[in-house]
């Protein structure tokens, strides 16, 4: 990792909801191939932070750079101005949602192929073929003509991961990908994510699965009340937390 280049970086990102400041000057850099896990108690701002990265939430201030190029964004009374630049950022950083959010009126295959066809401008046949390959990769090759509601939560989340991969992403964003799953389905989704990490994908993930975070992460960031309270390798953070808050949090969840 010594010669790694920075894939995604954030400088002094802050965000308020009304008078409530939820993120305070957060800075972070994800190198190519790095897996960064963001942990923290609920309300610490970790999901909001992740959602600021692809501008689903509009930060009040702060710079986002992808591959070294800053991304310009601005908002008006109707919210964020969805420019070409913003859309390009989003396609480069597809998100896997806690509640999957597969489009329920399309087959799983169409869910995976539609954005490549309409947003990336890929030929339909090529996009469909690639969708099939990706669904095979996440173990859903046989189910590609199913609708989302016909699949279990774990299968839906794996399909959602295939949908993200179809964007040929620069980095993947995971927003608590297993929190909405029945306990026995968590493993199959974590296995897929683990494979993606091993395959060298750059990933940023918010999760409550501490054992998993420890195994796959290159770096763990502990957010507390909208601030980076501590960050380090999984060993540093999990085995020897330097801050009282991190120690308390880890004691309460492990």
């Amino acid at each position: 990792m010594s010669a790694a280049t920075t894939r995604l970086s954030v400088q002094n990102l802050s965000k308020s909801f009304g008078s409530l400041r939820v993120l305070h000057d957060i800075s972070l850099a994800a190198d190519e191939g790095q897996v960064i896990t963001i942990i923290g108690s609920s309300g610490s701002g970790k999901s909001t932070f992740l959602r600021c990265l692809n501008l689903l939430e509009v930060p009040d201030g702060g710079a986002i750079s992808l591959d070294g190029r800053p991304v310009a964004y601005s908002s008006n009374a109707h919210g964020l101005k969805v420019t070409k630049e913003v859309r390009a950022l989003r396609t480069a950083l597809p998100m896997v949602f806690q509640s999957f959010n597969l489009w329920r009126h399309m087959s799983v295959r169409d869910n995976v192929a539609i954005a490549p066809i309409h947003v990336l401008g890929k030929p339909r046949a090529e996009a469909n073929e690639r969708a099939h390959d990706l669904l095979v990769r996440v173990g859903l090759g046989e189910r590609m003509h199913f609708y989302p509601h016909q699949l279990s939560g774990g299968q839906q989340q794996r399909a959602a991961i295939a949908r993200a991969l179809a964007m040929e992403p620069r980095a993947l964003l995971f927003d608590e990908p297993t929190s909405a799953l029945d306990p026995e389905l968590v493993g199959e989704v974590l296995k897929v994510i683990e494979e993606l990490a091993a395959a060298g994908n750059t990933m940023l993930m918010v999760t409550h699965e501490m054992g998993f975070a420890r195994n796959v992460s290159d770096r763990v960031i502990f957010l507390d009340q909208g601030r980076v309270a501590e960050s380090g390798t999984p060993e540093e953070l999990f085995d020897a937390p330097r801050t009282e808050r991190a120690a308390q949090f880890l004691a309460s969840v492990m």
Binding site: V82, R87, T91, N101, L102, H118, V119, L120, M167
Partner: peptide, 11 residues
Amino acid sequence: GQIEAAEAYGF
């Protein structure tokens, strides 16, 4: 969430 997913995928 359906709309949000579409936004997140650059629609």
